[in-house]
Design a protein around this nucleic acid. Sequence first.
DNA 1: ACGTTGTTTCGACAACTGTCAACCTAGACG
DNA 2: CGTCTAGGTTGACAGTTGTCGAAACAACGT
Lengths: 128, 128
Amino acid sequence: MTKQAGSLALTDLNAETPCCPPLARQRVPAETAAMMAPAFKALGDPVRLQLMSMIASAPDGEACVCDLTPAFELSGPTISHHLKTLREAGLVDAERRGTWVYYRARPDLLRRLATLLTIETPGETRTG
Amino acid sequence: MTKQAGSLALTDLNAETPCCPPLARQRVPAETAAMMAPAFKALGDPVRLQLMSMIASAPDGEACVCDLTPAFELSGPTISHHLKTLREAGLVDAERRGTWVYYRARPDLLRRLATLLTIETPGETRTG
DNA sequence: ACGTTGTTTCGACAACTGTCAACCTAGACG
DNA sequence: CGTCTAGGTTGACAGTTGTCGAAACAACGT
């Protein structure tokens, strides 16, 4: 299990590193790529992308697993597995309150990813 | 329409579909998720993320494979494979000019991904 | 036409991922 | 304490992915 890489990335991502100018502005260093790629990978599955959206768009900013699971035709363990992937990628946080577990989005990383993908509009439709 | 994930997604993504409000604004429909996830997946590899960045940040907006390959300690076929993945995800375009093949970023999809990840800052409440 | 150089495709293999069934843990309720 | 329900973990399996070497394809120089 070489999943220590994941946790390490998490640590770094949680820091206030101003690590990520837009991808199109300057070449992403290998170190940054290694940190951000797992987050993109986590979003690279339709189920997880929907889960992420359901969590991030929840009215109270958090979603109960009991609401997430029935939204898919997948078994509980499978949903749990996907949620774990999102957790390990640093995209969501989980909290148990009584019987239920609630998931909450981590806007920091999400915002960082968005920044990385940002394209600076040249102001014109096309260059040449 | 048959939903052949790969090529169909490409077609749709190339169109001017206003498909993607921020992920945190409203729940991403399964259809949209199926369209966007492959793009995130393509960026979910450190090598491809760097390739994407090298292409997108290239001075002339395009990068030659002959410049990309030596930037990694990977074989030519492997780099070519990653580039193909980016191509199939609709993130880049390839064009052969004489001996060399040049890759160019497709800002449309990149911008759409960024929009999808955009978080509306809570402190930035629109007054009125 | 031929050989040289650059790039992609093919074939193969190890590693990883998505999925489920079965089991285990945490809290609620009697 | 015992039992029920909600979730998470483990183990196993098929399918996919990352990687390479070898071969095929494309364009240039001679």
